[in-house]
Design a protein around this nucleic acid. Sequence first.
DNA 1: CCTCGACGATCAGGAGTCGCATGCGGTCCA
DNA 2: TGGACCGCATGCGACTCCTGATCGTCGAGG
Lengths: 221, 221
Amino acid sequence: MRLLIVEDEKRLALSLAKGLTAEGYAVDVVHDGREGLDRATTEPYDLVILDIMLPGLNGYRVCAALRAAGHDVPILMLTAKDGEYDEAEGLDTGADDYLTKPFSYVVLVARVKALLRRRRAAGASPVHVHGDLKVDTAARRVWLGGAETELTAKEFSVLEHLVLRAGEVVSKADILEHVWDFAYEGDPNIVEVYVSALRRKLRADLIRTVRGAGYRLETAP
Amino acid sequence: MRLLIVEDEKRLALSLAKGLTAEGYAVDVVHDGREGLDRATTEPYDLVILDIMLPGLNGYRVCAALRAAGHDVPILMLTAKDGEYDEAEGLDTGADDYLTKPFSYVVLVARVKALLRRRRAAGASPVHVHGDLKVDTAARRVWLGGAETELTAKEFSVLEHLVLRAGEVVSKADILEHVWDFAYEGDPNIVEVYVSALRRKLRADLIRTVRGAGYRLETAP
DNA sequence: CCTCGACGATCAGGAGTCGCATGCGGTCCA
DNA sequence: TGGACCGCATGCGACTCCTGATCGTCGAGG
């Protein structure tokens, strides 16, 4: 599950990102509205956490623009309590839920999970397809050209992370942070070991090495 | 059968939950309106017991929001006798039945059963079929390939939870939360013991272990 | 065009984790 | 009082994961 946080208070954004990453989500953070809109329109996020007061473009406008562009990604709005902005307005522009600052981290996580559950209950499939590769994140199953392949937990996590960023180059540090513990003090070689295993179990040319940068899951067949 | 209790008086909520659990229902409890709405919209409950006076969002609004969202889950409202809230209003917003505090536990159970019967009579099937496995959550009976199998209460609850999420990986923590008390502090080993029993009584390959992730009820035959 | 250095791939082994089976005592109910 | 059910503990077996070492490959600069 991939989350985008659009929040200009950097400390808050960072702490949310850390926590949600620990929950197992892939988290990206941007600090202004325009950048947020760009990312949300071009990348496949499962949920967007959107602050109202933002430099560049405020949260309402980001939200409205996203909906106008036909994106139905769930949006959780963050509003300040001082009443300058109205919660109802947030829901009117197409947000799915809102949270009033200050909020506890536990509540935020509960809302995030609820929104993701709701979306899943509505029939949104957690299945990702790229070429002849099919990955079902809920069932934790992987097919290649119709044949199912058995993966271990770590192998699946690495693959899932690459699939969520299919076509992009993902650095080893990024994979380490997301799949392993946050502050993992280990050899980046583990990533190589698991990529190697994935290539062996799936197909060698599925994961492309970008020397000095990381790995990229090939999307075109 | 899964029940959700939305009630902020914790002692009352707990005693109801205990009683209904003993009746064989899987019971979740939340203490405020918003959380109740979240859960009811995202989880597949068979009935919601909803107090009127709630922090966050009162019972009427939860009920109205649920109906507005297209959910037809039966709702049993709990009203205080002091007339501040009108019973009729509860029914207007879409509740199926109401009960005035204080009420006897026996009456509550009778109403719950009546509502579940009514829904069943209306054609909602509590029977889930996956391959040659048939599970009747109302009657709490299980058939495998036409032959009925006797399960204990806990065995059935674990199976029911897996059936409701058939095809997905369900973590042991998730099973613990839903089948045992919600704040259960116990050894995940219990889950393993019950899964083991289910495999013995049903078929070994029906419940698949996904190492490091949980269990998955196989859907394909 | 060759050489060298850095980076990446692969392999094997041991430690640790995870899941399963079994058995025992407690408790609840008939 | 007896039986069934439940929670818990233990020990075993298997698999996974990480580490370290070695081998391979790419690319830049001489």
